[in-house]
Amino acid sequence: MTESKEYRSKMMSRIRSTGGKAEVILAKALWHKGIRYFKNYKKVYGKPDIAITKYKIAVFVDGEFWHGYDWENQKKKRIRTNRDYWIPKIEKNIERDRIVNKKLEDDGWIVLRFLEKHEVLKDLDSCVEKVINKVNYQRSTIET
């Protein structure tokens, strides 16, 4: 099924950069496990979706399309119109993610990136466990 240009435009305009379903679900799950954080923390490079500042852990919840999940296949199969716009845009996003990761890691942060649909919405418990493991690791290095 192909959507009309009007329908596609309306759907794309409704996508928001913060506070998506997966981001909210992960944040609430972490809060219920006792993990305290800041959302969309502007004081650190890259503005992580969830920043656990006490342990310098930055968590990003990435949409598969916008962050180039399975990019080599997707750019051939999924992007059929306006390729001159979308391909460079997504590739810039992928490069920006690399730069953000490197900058944060150079500043002593642990960076965790989860895919919205393939990880957070499919296996929330695993994502929460990964964050908690990093918190526990950081906690143990601080205490020793």
Rank of each mutant, 00 (worst) to 15 (best):
G46I: 02
G108E: 07
K77C: 03
G46L: 01
K47S: 09
I57T: 09
A27D: 04
N73L: 11
R96P: 10
S13M: 02
W71Y: 13
V111L: 08
R16N: 15
E105D: 09
S17M: 07
K28L: 01
E64T: 10
I87N: 14
K92S: 15
L30W: 03
Y69H: 15
I94M: 08
E91W: 13
I52L: 07
N82F: 03
F65Q: 11
M12E: 11
T53A: 15
N101A: 10
K117V: 07
L121N: 12
S17W: 03
K21V: 09
D97I: 00
Y37G: 06
A29S: 10
W86D: 07
T18E: 08
I15K: 10
I15V: 13
T81W: 05
I57D: 07
K10T: 09
I52T: 05
W71S: 13
V131I: 03
S13L: 06
G63M: 08
A58K: 02
V120I: 13
W86P: 08
K102R: 15
W66K: 11
V128H: 00
R96F: 03
G34Y: 00
L112K: 13
N40H: 08
C127H: 12
F38V: 03
A29M: 02
S126L: 09
K33W: 02
E105K: 14
L104P: 11
V59K: 12
G34V: 02
I90T: 09
K89N: 14
D125Q: 05
K75C: 06
E91I: 05
L121T: 05
E95V: 04
G46Y: 01
L112H: 08
W31M: 01
K103S: 10
I90V: 13
E64L: 09
I110W: 05
E119D: 14
V120Q: 14
I52V: 06
C127Q: 14
L112A: 14
R83P: 02
K89C: 09
A51F: 03
D49I: 03
N93A: 10
D106E: 15
I110F: 10
R78L: 13
W66V: 02
F38T: 09
H118F: 07
R113G: 04
E105C: 10
V61T: 04
E95F: 08
A51T: 00
R96Q: 11
D97H: 04
D106F: 02
R78C: 11
K92Y: 13
E119W: 04
Q74L: 01
L121G: 08
R83H: 05
V61Q: 03
Y7V: 01
S13A: 15
R96L: 02
L121K: 12
H32D: 15
V131L: 01
K102P: 03
N40G: 02
D97N: 15
E129Y: 00
E91A: 09
D107I: 02
K21W: 06
V111N: 14
D125H: 05
K76W: 03
E6H: 11
D106H: 01
R36A: 01
L104D: 13
I15L: 11
Y85K: 14
